[in-house]
Each structure stands twice: as C-alpha cells, then as structure tokens.
Amino acid sequence: MIDIDSYAYSNNLKTVHPAEKSVFTMMTMVVCLTATTVITPLIVLAIMAGGIVIKAGIPARVFVKLMLVPLSFLLISVLTIAFSVSTNPAGFWLAQTIHGLTVGIHYPDLITAVHLFLRSLGAVSCLYFLALTTPMTEIITVLHKLKVPVIITELMVLIYRFIFVFMETATTIRRAQLSRSGYVSMKSSFRSLSRLSSALLGKVFVKSQELYNALAARCYSGEIRVLTKKRPVSLRNYLMITGFEIPLILLNLLWR
C-alpha cells in the first residue's frame, strides 16, 4: 500500500539487526550534515545508493524515483536561498536590473545553495537506506531499547497498525464518493472531503473502543507488552560501519 513500507519487509537486508542499520544511518547522516566539502555528501550518496540497490536489492528505478520525491521542496528552497531581490544592485555576482529592482544571485548564497543541495540529497539517501531496509516494527523496538518513553512507542505501535486500516477505509469511501460524482466541483469536493473525514473520525471512536475491549479480553492491564524477534548481532557489520565512517570523518576534519 505504501511502497517504502512494502520494501522494508521484502529486501535482502531485512534480517540484519535493526540497531546496526540505525547506527549506520544516523552516523552517516551526521557525517553528511557536518561535511565542509561537497565530496562527502557525494560519497555518502554513492555508499547509500550501493547499499540500497546492490546490498538490499531494491530496484534502481525505485530508488531513483524515491530520490525525486523531496525534489520540489529542495528546488524551491535552494532557489529561494540563491536568489535575492533588492533595490541595491551592488554586490551581486549575477543579476538583472529591471526598473531599479535587481533580481540576482550573491556568490556566497550560491555556494550555500549548492552545498545544501548536495548535503540534503546525501542525507535523504541515508533516510531511505533505513526506511527501505528496516520494518517499522523493528525501528520501534530500537526506540524502545533507547528508553524512549513507553507511551510514545506504544502509540507508535498503534498508529502504525491503524494507518493501514484507515487508509483502506478512506480509499473505499473515496471510491464510493467518486462513483456518485463527488469531487466534481469545488463545493462538492469540500462536502465530500468533510464527509470522508468525519466518517473516518467516527470510525476512530468506534474502532478504538472495540480495540480496547479486544485487548482487555486478552488481559490488557494498562501496558502493551510484546515479544520482539531477536536478530543476530554481527560484529562484522559494526566493523564495516566503523570502516566506512572513519575515512569520512577524517575527510571532514582534514578538508578545510
């Protein structure tokens, strides 16, 4: 139903311990964010693309398509940083003045924008590595181990489960509305959408009470406790992570 989620359950790195994948992702992300050179983000992007496509076996086509998802935000924001509008034409690196108003680029802004562009892409590839290789339930387990408040992980378990239940309901309702010519005009769109939202919200109330009853029937007494699947811990993976990160950190420190 959600592509990224489906791949998380059907990739070749699925059985790797989620903590190892999380450590790798987070460390690489921090290295990427603290990079002072454009080379680091490019290396990060290459490593993650390799991990996702070659190691995890996600089709390259899918990876490329996913990398394009944040592109609209990225382009708008990067262009916003690069371009300035001013009544003072001085100091521009590249500019066009029309009727006393100057639209153009200041050189330092351009550098910031280019760095930012690459750094964001590098970081996004890290995010995808984690998201595409690790089932959400296991990420929640890692958070639990990190002593995130229990109420947060419990809510995450419930939210994750019911996202899919409600998505199914929403799709069904929407299909029914479309078949009865909902959403044809602005007015009917508003009406259809508000009906859909309140129908869903109604479900939220009913289902939550049903779920509570069902859990109570299984002796629920305030805390949701579950067993989690044990994944083998691999020393080799940790060594490999260290092997990747140390050169990148050195690169960041030495390239000034």
Binding site: E154, L158, I163, F166, L200, V204, S208, Q209, L211, Y212
Partner: peptide, 29 residues
Amino acid sequence: VTLYPNLKMLLGMAGAFAFVLSALKIPSV
C-alpha cells in the same frame, strides 16, 4: 490514560487518522 485506559487506543487511532488525513488532497480556494 491512567484515568481512562481506553483513551490510549483512541489517541493511537487519532494519530493514524491524522496521517491518513494528511495524505488526502484538500481543494484550495
């Protein structure tokens, strides 16, 4: 939720609802 344990389920489902809602398209004026 200590006072009303069933509200934990309600909050969880409300979160799921918010996620689904944010994935719906809203017509703009």
